[in-house]
Design a binder for these strands. Structure first.
Lengths: 162, 162
DNA sequence: CGACGTTTGTTGAATGTTCAACTTATCAGG
DNA sequence: CCTGATAAGTTGAACATTCAACAAACGTCG
């Protein structure tokens, strides 16, 4: 094995700032959504992905991809969303292994009601803190990180309806 | 109430890229640490914070701050770390409400063993994907986001020992 | 002093996530 | 057609995190 290339002080600072900032931001968004709309951030992403799909439904596997969730997480999450009446499951006719998840009308209404507060929070805590130049840079940086995981910057996930 | 200022297409792309990239990165680090060292990322941060403290111990409240954890989360986490024999609790003599958490020798050894793999992962998935200019920009962007939460860029959290 | 508000830390319940195992179905080759 | 490999989705157990409630100790100000 090779010997470790430790982070120098600058890298150290950047790394800690980044991981802390993204963590705090996500936690605050989670809290905001939970408080105002009774769902964690991840569930919001699932509803958004469904809301943008044709007929507001997707195969579980596609939904997992769109919302960056593991199959297992999605399965559990959809069960909860189904209990809440926001999503329905439907068997896939073509592939008998498959399942469709479909956003219900009520789910869509809940999403419409949740979106403004969520977007306001994203704006306040992210975009309002950055210059236009920084926003552009952040986009490129994020894309580069995703590239590193082999995730094409295509089929990116969640956000507001309309 | 005002009417919502939705994200335009560019903002949309930046936002989704950012939240996805930071999420995937954190998940991969979590998986790497769990697999190679049997602890989640948050626990690693706690051990690092302790390792950097004088005498390798801190008041629970300071530790919570240093590792960006809620009091409750920290309390549960330290209980687990204590069961693992990596951390000890000790009553604070000055303030009888207080508790010190102290990294054990074994805990330090575990941390030493975990750090190289973790740093290698951070380097591979973050720094290796970015130009030096992007790294610099990411540092400033992260600091700006933290500023927005009133968190001074001071007392930033976790990373490798030595 | 002494009452009230604050800080510190813990706890238990509810919830979310992960991992591994499993079932069922599709697909590709022989 | 049959077999083995792969893919889709679910499940349960173990674990982590959140929230609200709580207990105990400070601190302060009348």
């Amino acid at each position: 094995m090779e010997q470790t290339r430790w982070l120098d002080d600058d890298e150290q600072r950047v790394w800690r700032s980044f991981i802390t900032a993204s963590g705090v931001l996500k936690e605050e968004l989670d809290r905001q959504l939970q408080r105002d709309s009774g769902m964690p951030y991840g569930y919001y992403g699932i509803l958004v992905a469904l809301s943008e799909a044709p007929n507001r439904e997707l195969r579980m596997s596609e939904l997992a991809c769109s919302s960056s969730a593991s199959r297992s997480r999605l399965s559990h999450a959809v069960s909860r969303l189904e209990e809440a009446g926001w999503v329905n499951r439907r068997a896939c006719p073509d592939d008998r292994r498959g399942t469709f998840a479909k956003l219900t009308d009520e789910g869509y209404r809940v999403l419409e009601q949740a979106a403004p507060g969520h977007v306001a929070a994203v704006r306040e805590w992210l975009f309002d803190q950055l210059t236009p130049e920084q926003v552009r840079a952040l986009g490129e940086i994020s894309a580069a990180i995703l590239e590193g995981f082999g995730a094409s910057s295509e089929n990116l996930p969640p956000m507001p309806p309309t």
